[in-house]
């Protein structure tokens, strides 16, 4: 497989279609610069700024871009807010569409067939395997990502975090809480 990847890179470089140095920059960006901390800042801002939260609800693509996080593939973002009644869970049943600009590269399990199929068929069971037991009367809404539309879950703000700074709040926001396979950390 490595030889075929090298072959593609060789052919495309010879034809001037790619520049190996530019690819190194892309890889470095996603490995070291873009990650779930971007999404955590979006969530923390939404928790502390009602106007921003409303904007995020209305037009997540623009609200997220205002913090400097834009998708390379021109995809649209939708923010889905957890409430007392509803928990949101994100999956891509077709492949592995994921909001790279706010969460970085997807975890391995997100791309694996068991998660991709079972998140839709048995979301409650999947969440329990992640150690998340939701009350029976809580609805679970599953969002199926596409190449054009990616979802960011806004977890509920933990109680006891009143008056916290955005930086401190962002530390409570885990990657999994923004996919919906977890909750935000408790305020300690």
């Amino acid at each position: 497989m490595a030889a075929r990847v090298r072959a593609l890179e060789t052919i495309l470089t010879r034809k001037g279609l790619i520049d190996p140095a530019a690819i190194d920059v892309i890889v470095d960006t996603y490995e070291t610069k873009v990650g779930p901390r971007n999404g955590a800042r979006v969530v923390a801002k939404a928790w502390s700024d009602r106007e921003y939260a409303d904007w995020l609800k209305r037009d997540a693509t623009a609200a997220i871009a205002s913090l400097g996080y834009t998708g390379r593939q021109g995809e649209h973002m939708q923010a889905v807010f957890n409430t007392d009644e509803t928990h949101n869970l994100v999956v891509c049943t077709l492949c592995s569409c994921y909001p790279w600009s706010v969460l970085g590269l997807p975890p391995v399990w997100y791309k694996a067939p068991p998660y991709r199929s079972r998140a839709v068929i048995d979301p409650r069971g999947v969440l329990e395997e992640f150690g998340l037991s939701l009350p029976k009367d809580k609805n679970i809404r599953v969002w199926d990502s596409t190449a054009e539309l990616r979802y960011l879950v806004v977890p509920q703000r933990p109680s006891g975090s009143d008056g916290w700074s955005e930086d401190k709040l962002a530390d409570l926001v885990t990657r999994d809480s923004m996919i919906g396979t977890g909750l935000a950390r408790e305020a300690a």
């Binding site: 990847v5 593609l8 890179e9 495309l12 279609l17 790619i18 520049d19 530019a22 690819i23 892309i26 390379r72 593939q73 021109g74 995809e75 077709l94 492949c95 592995s96 569409c97 067939p113 596409t146 190449a147 054009e148």
Partner: peptide, 26 residues
């Protein structure tokens, strides 16, 4: 490489997602 080729405008991201989806569903 896929991201670089897409940024050159050689295919749309939807085209790519459709091919990837076909392959993982085999």
């Amino acid at each position: 490489m896929v991201v670089a080729l897409h940024e050159r405008g050689l295919f749309s991201w939807a085209e790519w997602a459709e091919r990837l989806s076909t392959e993982v569903k085999r």
